Simulated assay, not measured.
Amino acid sequence: MVRTRSGDVQGVAPSATLAEKVEWLIRNMWPAEAPPPRNNVETAAAIARATGEDISSTTVWKLRTGRQDNPQLKTLTALATFFGVPIGYFGFPGEAGPIDDDLTFKALRREVEAGVVRSEVLRALVDLSPEARWVVDEMILAAARADRLRRHPERPPSGDS
């Protein structure tokens, strides 16, 4: 779970769809050296410039909205290269748990470096007793569920974060 640039607390669930994974990468793993995209045209152009792979804004739109869930290998390779993730990240739902955890930690580290998440908060969390850490964990999970429900009222609440 991470706090995104927009302030949302979220992570990539192991059961995430390809669209959710692509959207998560765009929001959380956008390369620091590339200007943040304002739309799918800028997203596609940045990926094409960095990878040399011609990817259209329509393809980006289809991937982000779930209208394309079986892209060509060259498209997935370009995305993996651009975002610095293993190609296995785009595997079938439920298969990429350890990869997702690694990426979540990588995104969290970037948020700390950017000052979005204060490093002293993470140090304080490590210093808490197991009981106090459990209370904080439960509060974070409850806040994440409430935030997801607020942002996506049409989705039923899930038991995981």
Rank of each mutant, 00 (worst) to 15 (best):
R3I: 14
S6F: 04
D8R: 13
V9H: 00
P14D: 07
S15F: 12
T17S: 13
A19E: 06
K21E: 02
K21M: 06
R27W: 13
P31L: 06
A32L: 13
A32I: 11
A34F: 08
P35C: 02
P37Q: 11
R38V: 12
N40F: 10
V41H: 09
E42I: 02
T43N: 03
I47T: 02
R49C: 03
A50L: 01
G52A: 00
E53H: 10
I55L: 09
I55Q: 03
V60T: 08
W61A: 11
W61I: 03
K62E: 10
K62M: 05
K62A: 09
L63N: 03
L63C: 07
R64D: 04
R64K: 15
R64Y: 06
N70T: 15
T75M: 00
L76S: 03
L76E: 01
T77A: 10
A78Y: 03
A80E: 04
A80H: 00
F82Q: 01
F83S: 01
V85M: 07
F90A: 00
F90C: 03
F90V: 06
G91E: 11
G94V: 13
A96D: 00
A96Y: 00
P98F: 03
P98I: 04
P98S: 11
I99V: 05
D100W: 01
D102Q: 12
T104N: 07
K106Y: 04
A107H: 05
R110K: 13
V112G: 02
V112E: 04
V112Y: 06
V112M: 10
E113Y: 06
E113V: 00
V116I: 11
R118E: 15
R118P: 02
R118I: 07
V121H: 13
V121G: 11
A124I: 05
L125Y: 15
L125F: 13
V126M: 00
D127I: 01
D127C: 07
L128P: 01
E131N: 11
A132L: 07
A132V: 14
R133Y: 05
W134R: 15
E138G: 06
M139Q: 15
M139I: 15
I140S: 02
L141F: 13
A142K: 15
A143D: 11
A143V: 09
A146Q: 14
R148P: 08
R148D: 09
L149W: 05
R150K: 14
R150L: 10
R151T: 03
R151H: 10
H152G: 05
P153T: 05
P153M: 01
P156R: 15
P156H: 12
S158R: 14
G159A: 12
G159L: 12
D160Q: 10
